[in-house]
Simulated assay, not measured.
Amino acid sequence: MELMEKIWEMARNDNRKIVLPEGNEERTLKAAEKIVANSLAKVILVENEESIKTKAQELGVNLSGIEIIDPDKSDKLEKYVNAFYELRKKKGMTLEKADKIVRDPLYFSTMMVKMEDAEGMVSGAIHTTGDLLRPGLQIIKTAPGTSVVSSVFIMMVPDCEYGEKGMLLFSDCAVNPNPSSEQLASIAITTAETAKWLCNLEPKVAMLSFSTMGSADHELVDKVRKGTELAKQMRPDLLIDGELQLDASIVQKVADQKAPNSEVAGKANILIFPDLQAGNIGYKLVQRFAKAEAVGPICQGFAKPINDLSRGCSVDDIVNVVAVTAVQAQNIQK
């Protein structure tokens, strides 16, 4: 069974309530219909109710089984405004400002997750990653023991011998522009945990660089080297190694030559990129040139599941990320 089929099955077996704040956006409406038709989640659309219904009618989208919430008309608006004010009052928030901010569908939806009226959120079809992260960090915040929010793409490359039969996890490709050594260590550990519960993989984590095991000296290499050391200290039970060049990470013949004593080199199924430029370029190269399916970006490190979309996402991309978010919600409850 393919990975997404397994994730769909898990989502169906224990339906979770997922809120979509871009409720009147065309792809989101079509995805919502498909999610409900396939019993992947209980869907809540947030936006002006009339605009959602008008758009759905134009598109021929069936809204049966889909909950619609208009922030301006919600009986929970005052409760959310007061809760948001309490969260942010030390930062200069006033009740007047809070009332204006929480009426924004993205903030309203994030408050729904915070107040446990929804179990996860997916946005990004028309919002940037920064738009999603801002309320996420202000309201949901990071999970206990996690110092940084990051992202992971599950890359599934057809007819590929690398990783786990062509499946690899790439991180961080969407959130942290220039992670520190400490942040790289945290990202590596969080991604390893994601690989275990979501993909059922035994993680083998390669910390990527332009150097392999001291073949080059540079401050950029030092950052990765220190991040590797910290990750090993924090989680000696995980297979994490570096610094490794990409070919040494996934090609056994190259690994035998460049890093013969590494348990990860040549076998890596998780690639941790040294910065956002490398990660973003890397996943898009693989997606386009190798015709890989890229599931994500999946956000890691939040206390509750909220996930981003590419603004170029398809309807199926939204459906898949909602299914992943539902499974994340299940995992948090364990």
Rank of each mutant, 00 (worst) to 15 (best):
E58I: 10
I44K: 01
Q252Y: 07
F210W: 12
I52V: 14
T94V: 07
E293W: 00
L95R: 11
I332R: 08
A37M: 07
F210I: 14
E164G: 02
A265K: 04
M4L: 14
M112S: 08
I270S: 02
L271W: 02
A290D: 07
A259Q: 04
A56R: 00
V221M: 04
F170S: 03
S51Q: 14
E263K: 08
E47I: 01
I35K: 02
H127N: 15
P179F: 07
D308G: 07
W197R: 06
L40P: 08
D275G: 06
M155V: 14
V113C: 06
K90W: 08
D159W: 00
T54I: 13
F170W: 06
P203M: 02
V321R: 01
L244A: 13
P236F: 03
E22L: 04
Q138Y: 06
D275K: 05
L133R: 07
D222Q: 07
S171N: 09
G130T: 13
V175A: 06
C173E: 07
K89V: 15
K53P: 07
G266A: 12
S215F: 00
C160P: 10
S211M: 08
G65S: 10
A206R: 02
K76R: 13
P71W: 00
S109I: 11
P274W: 01
T28Y: 01
A185N: 09
V43I: 15
N280F: 09
P105I: 12
K97L: 09
D117E: 15
Y162R: 02
Q277E: 15
G166C: 07
E58R: 04
A265C: 13
N269M: 11
L137C: 12
K141C: 11
K90G: 09
G136W: 01
G296Y: 01
L77V: 10
Q328H: 12
P105T: 14
V43W: 01
S181H: 11
G163E: 11
G312H: 10
A248M: 10
K34H: 06
M121A: 06
C173D: 13
N200E: 13
L40G: 09
A329E: 00
K6P: 07
M156H: 11
G312E: 13
M155K: 01
V46A: 03
A98M: 09
H127R: 12
V251L: 09
K196Y: 11
A255L: 11
L3Q: 09
G266N: 08
M93P: 03
V224A: 10
E229D: 13
K100I: 15
P305A: 10
K334C: 04
V148Q: 13
A192Q: 03
A303W: 03
R16Y: 11
Y107Q: 04
E67C: 09
A292M: 04
F108H: 02
S186E: 15
V149S: 07
V102T: 14
I18V: 15
G60V: 10
I306S: 10
E293G: 01
L238V: 05
A185L: 05
K291T: 12
P305R: 00
A37C: 02
S147L: 11
A125N: 05
L95P: 04
I126S: 15
Q233S: 13
F84R: 06
F153M: 15
